[in-house]
Amino acid sequence: MNPTVALLLAQDGITNGIVFALLGVAILLVFLVTRVLFVVQGEFVVLGAVTLVQVQRGEVAGAAWLLMPLALLCLVLSAIQFVRERNSRLWSLQNGICLLALAIGLCATFYPPAGKSAWLQITTVVCLITPMGPLLYWTAFRNICRSSILTLLFAAMCVHYVLQGLMLPLFGPEGFRALPLVRGRIDFGGIWLSAQLIFMLCVFLLLTTALWLVFHHTLPGKALRAVSINRVGARLVGISSDIAGAAAFGLASLIGAVSGILIAPLSNVYYDSGFLLALKGFVGCVVGGLASFPLAALGALLTGLLDSFAAFYASALKDSIVFALLVPMLLYMSVTQISGRGEEAGE
């Protein structure tokens, strides 16, 4: 392998790595706040990408057909709860978001955004995908949020199956590829970098900075961080785990939508692309120790690089190599953990 090839591989690896890192950060956020290992994150990415393509084509976004029933279901559940428990409020954040999601869905169905403005396209995607996070939390996870990690993982797998199963008839089996939002490549004396990579890096840095600002300099962000550090403690000081969960899911779906927008021009996205992506983002998280956001992002970048170099040296066994990475990492984490005391599987 000569230096040029190595450089190109590294560039490819970092491009993949950024996507994995976005997935990894979202998965970690959800895990720390709610203990859900959120394999559904991949579906958000796919939804983001497919929606961008559909908006670019001027079609009605299929995501609206997931969003509206979900919002309705959530409203029905909330109505049932209202009838059952007299003390719950009719006008809550949850119902507000449901109604907003319905409005967005209707809007996107009957007035599909026209025009070539990239900003309009991006806004549409973000508006359609982001509400799904909290809605999914309220419908599928809230009532079992105290269960074991294992039960929550099963629930996440179920949601993944349901979404993927619905996306096949909704989007069809073929791939979706978006028109590039930025074009061209930049030459550095013979070595070129694609504009898309620079764009991705910028968005990634922007998003992580924004997240950092939110987490460290806003009250809701700090509350969320408090929950992720100590759930029980946060509950004791009056931070609602319900809202924190919904917020974590909302941030995850937002990050998913952005990842989808980033990945859509790079390659074909299929209705079932999400699972493998989520798993690799998840490998990245574990490589980063499943505890800190910067480490998770770094781990995901490493996973991306490994993915790329493994594809060069032994493409047929690429995924085996990437996933095999999990075991030594987990072993290391198990050994370094304080052992023996109060350890419960699934807790």
Binding site: L37, I149, L150, L153, L279, F282, V283, V286, A316, L317, K318, D319, S320, I321, F323, A324, L325, L326, V327, L330, L331, M333, S334, V335, Q337, S339, E343, E344, A345, G346, E347
Partner: peptide, 28 residues
Amino acid sequence: WITVRLSGHYLVLGTLGWSVGFYYVLAN
């Protein structure tokens, strides 16, 4: 021998790792 040394939910994730790995090895 390796897997049972993983603790708690790491164990579940470990089985996930070799499950994916095994499939491609089998095919290759």
